[in-house]
């Protein structure tokens, strides 16, 4: 039986799972490293090469939901050790859930939460609040730490049934809502920037500069419609357009 200290330790070790990320097994060695103290406690007679190879097989999932998956894995291993019947072993459970959990988790945390928090910090910085990076850091760390700790306790308590809990939270829907909120912030920020550009007293938005800007934004729009848009290209194109427009004034 794992104590709450063990579960917190599991969540802590999960922070370092990416340290040996590699192109063949992805997080395989990291998972083995995270689980090995707990597995060794139960399976000290079985910590041989085949056992390591099983847990060292290909594994990759979202880092924020990883504690949930690994805690459920340990719950399965514990039941197996106690002789209870388990629907599938820990390795098979990990293989089964890693891809769906990765898809949902990446969309939520990397695709939804991070852009929203970072955009908010950039907008605050634009208004002169220079401490905004600390706020972004604090918010993100607090939210993800809560998810990690909640997930590790629920994962251990529910075992494989934790998948149902993840489904109940409708994380994919939350990701869409976060992205929509990011778009609202983005639209407001773009309007503020446009307002600042028009109000810039150093140069009037007329003549060649206006033509250059309209051309730059049109090209940017066209490039954004393509999937392989490169933001760097947009930035360089803009800089050149501005330099040329300024030179023509």
């Amino acid at each position: 039986m794992l104590s709450w200290r063990d579960l917190v330790r599991l969540a802590w070790r999960c922070l370092f799972v990416q340290m040996s990320w590699n192109f063949k097994g992805f997080q395989n060695l990291g998972r083995l490293w995270v689980l090995s103290p707990f597995l060794r406690r139960w399976h000290h007679d079985r910590m041989d090469l085949p056992f390591c190879s099983r847990y060292g097989s290909y594994f990759n999932t979202n880092v924020f939901l990883l504690p949930t998956v690994l805690a459920a894995t340990l719950a399965l291993e514990e039941k197996d050790r106690e002789g209870q019947s388990v629907p599938l072993d820990g390795v098979a459970f990990g293989q089964a859930v890693m891809a769906p959990v990765a898809a949902v988790g990446d969309a939520l945390f990397w695709g939804g939460l991070r852009p929203l928090i970072v955009l908010g910090a950039v907008v605050l910085a634009w208004f002169g609040y220079t401490w905004s990076p600390w706020l972004a850091l604090l918010l993100f760390v607090l939210l993800t730490t809560y998810v990690r700790l909640y997930g590790v306790f629920k994962g251990y308590a529910l075992g494989p049934q934790v998948v149902g809990l993840i489904q109940q939270f409708r994380l994919a829907g939350c990701a869409v809502v976060l992205k929509q909120m990011s778009l609202v912030v983005l639209g407001s920020f773009a309007a503020l920037l446009a307002d600042a550009l028009v109000a810039e007293p150093a140069v009037a938005l007329s003549g060649p500069l206006l033509v250059g800007l309209v051309a730059a934004l049109t090209l940017a729009w066209g490039l954004c419609c393509c999937r392989r848009v490169v933001a760097t290209v947009l930035l360089w194109w803009c800089a050149v357009a501005v330099a040329m427009a300024t030179a023509m004034l």
Partner: peptide, 9 residues
């Protein structure tokens, strides 16, 4: 302007 273009991206 650069920020605006980055936003467009």
């Amino acid at each position: 302007l650069l920020l605006l273009l980055a936003v467009v991206g």
